[in-house]
């Protein structure tokens, strides 16, 4: 029931975002959309993802979008209706919906994703009777996967975030010489 209500709110927010011309209201609504998305993730038992979505999507990106608005304009330009983009969007959406039909039911223990390495990871959380751990042995499987099993990936992600920060600083920060003159 609450899932249907949340999905309805998500659709309503997305529709309003599409219809609105005021960019300020749009930014606020995308923040709300992220927050609803976070609630949705929480209901799907993914608190780690919900955490990130609430902090980044609803929090920081909203602030940064507002900062961008103050640098640009507050009104969306009125553009004429075009058929090709609509067709592309509808075709992509239809393909995605069609693809979900083949997916296993949410939480299905027999789903391929739950049969590959996941049982090994979950078994590793509980230490053996003599107190030894097999591989990682920390209670939060998500952290174990991110930080230890997939440590290379997370190092790469950290470098990506660092690179993004450097890129923003290069683009937005004015050179020192200009300040002095």
């Amino acid at each position: 029931m609450i899932l249907i209500a949340l999905l309805a709110l998500l659709v309503a927010t997305a529709w309003t975002v599409v219809r609105l011309r005021s960019l300020f209201a749009t930014v606020m609504l995308t923040g709300i959309y992220s927050f609803l998305g976070a609630s949705w993730m929480l209901l799907l038992d993914a608190p780690d993802v919900a955490f990130t979505e609430a902090a980044v999507g609803a929090g920081i990106s909203t602030v940064i979008m507002l900062a961008t608005l103050s640098l640009t304009t507050r009104e969306e330009k009125v553009c004429r209706f075009r058929v090709l983009p609509l067709l592309v969007v509808v075709a992509t959406g239809a393909a995605l919906v069609y693809a979900t039909l083949d997916m296993p039911v949410h939480g299905d223990p027999a789903a391929p994703a739950h049969l590959h390495v996941a049982p090994e990871y979950i078994a590793d959380v509980v230490p053996t009777p003599d107190g030894e751990v097999l591989q990682v042995g920390i209670p939060n499987v998500v952290t174990a996967v991110l930080a230890s099993y997939r440590g290379y990936d997370t190092l790469g992600e950290t470098v990506v975030i660092f690179t993004a920060g450097v890129a923003v600083m290069l683009l937005l920060r004015r050179p020192r010489r200009e300040d002095e003159s």
């Binding site: 920081i60 602030v63 940064i64 900062a67 961008t68 103050s70 640098l71 952290t143 930080a147 440590g151 997370t154 190092l155 992600e157 950290t158 975030i161 660092f162 993004a164 920060g165 923003v168 600083m169 937005l172 920060r173």
Partner: peptide, 24 residues
């Protein structure tokens, strides 16, 4: 390593915010 991730993410977010705010 989680501390390393946290340090980088916090610093990058703060500096992105500062870069935008300084522009404004």
């Amino acid at each position: 390593i989680e501390a390393g991730v946290g340090i980088t993410v916090a610093a990058v977010m703060i500096s992105i915010f500062q870069a935008f705010a300084a522009r404004r």
